[in-house]
């Protein structure tokens, strides 16, 4: 029997092996340059590749929505009752917070604090998950042309989701807060102790490098400290669930229950400039003293 691919001449075969060997050598010798080149060329290619991705994601979302609305109706009444109770409770909270906000406004005016600028944000839709199994990441339908750049923070109204690690023309990749390669500066709201929030292999998050003398407790809320990275201060990250304090260790750590269920996120906000940066940018545009 004539063998498979026997048509491909030995010359072509040799060329294929030579090409691969050359590419292998190039990637190992000029790793940074090759990465830069691939990333640069990937902008327009990613733009084209994101078109079928967006189409399929829209169909997928449509089917999921119909399924949720018409097929999976079990427990909706119970959920409705619970939500009504929650609304009542939140109304009460809301009025209290209105009072507090008014008081804060008055005190701020008294202290002549400069009004803090809100961060600039871009809303984006989740159109996919990481194409590999090794990273916990989301694909967004906004990219470089919408002003999104690597290292920008990504949140939902509930709290922190992750940060941008890669962009193409029309899409971007968000490394989730639960990925072990991600690190965000965190702060325990009650004790004001600072640490680093890192993901774990199990898809959870932990607050590391906390001082041994910290009096953290189960249930303490953890927020962004705003010291490092593109997250403004005070964004919710999670709640402390379990404290790990080992004898002889220099630091203690704590496992967190995240505010955002990163497995079910559909829409997010990308922070283009945190409060500090936007204030600075505003100052550059409108210098002080300008009428």
């Amino acid at each position: 029997m004539r063998m498979a691919n026997s048509r491909s001449s030995s010359g072509s075969r040799r060329r294929a092996f030579a090409c691969f060997a050359l590419l292998l050598a190039a990637v190992f010798l000029f790793h940074g340059e090759i990465q830069g080149l691939l990333q640069y060329l990937g902008g327009p290619v990613g733009h084209v590749a994101s078109i079928p991705l967006e189409v399929i994601a829209s169909i997928d979302t449509g089917i999921a929505n119909r399924w949720q609305r018409y097929v999976v109706l079990q427990g909706v009444w119970d959920e409705n009752q619970q939500l009504r109770k929650d609304i009542e409770w939140l109304r009460g909270q809301n009025s209290q917070l209105h009072e507090l906000a008014a008081a804060t406004e008055r005190l701020t005016a008294l202290l002549q604090f400069k009004e803090q600028a809100l961060p600039t944000m871009v809303a984006a839709r989740v159109i996919g998950r990481d194409t590999t199994n090794r990273y916990q990441a989301l694909i967004l339908n906004k990219g470089e042309r919408d002003g999104i750049k690597p290292d920008m923070g990504v949140i939902t109204p509930a709290g922190v989701v992750g940060r941008i690690v890669k962009t193409t023309g029309a899409s971007s990749v968000v490394l989730l807060v639960t990925d072990p390669n991600n690190a965000i500066a965190g702060l325990i709201q009650r004790t004001r102790d600072e640490g680093v929030v890192e993901g774990t292999q199990q898809g959870r998050a932990q607050l590391k490098y906390l001082p041994l003398l910290s009096t953290l407790q189960h249930g303490d809320r953890v927020v962004t400290s705003g010291l490092i990275g593109d997250f403004p201060r005070g964004l919710a990250i999670g709640t402390i669930m379990h404290i790990d304090k080992q004898e002889g260790a220099l630091f203690q750590s704590a496992e967190l229950m995240l505010e955002v269920d990163v497995g079910r996120v559909e829409e997010v906000l990308v922070i283009q400039a945190s409060s500090g940066q936007s204030t600075k940018a505003a100052r550059e545009v409108d210098p002080p003293g300008k009428p």
Binding site: V45, D130, Y135
Partner: peptide, 17 residues
């Protein structure tokens, strides 16, 4: 390898190879 890698958090290069 290249195109799939554009939609992943992994480094460009290795999955290409």
């Amino acid at each position: 390898g290249w195109v799939l890698n554009l939609f992943s958090a992994s480094e460009l290069g290795l999955s290409l190879l």
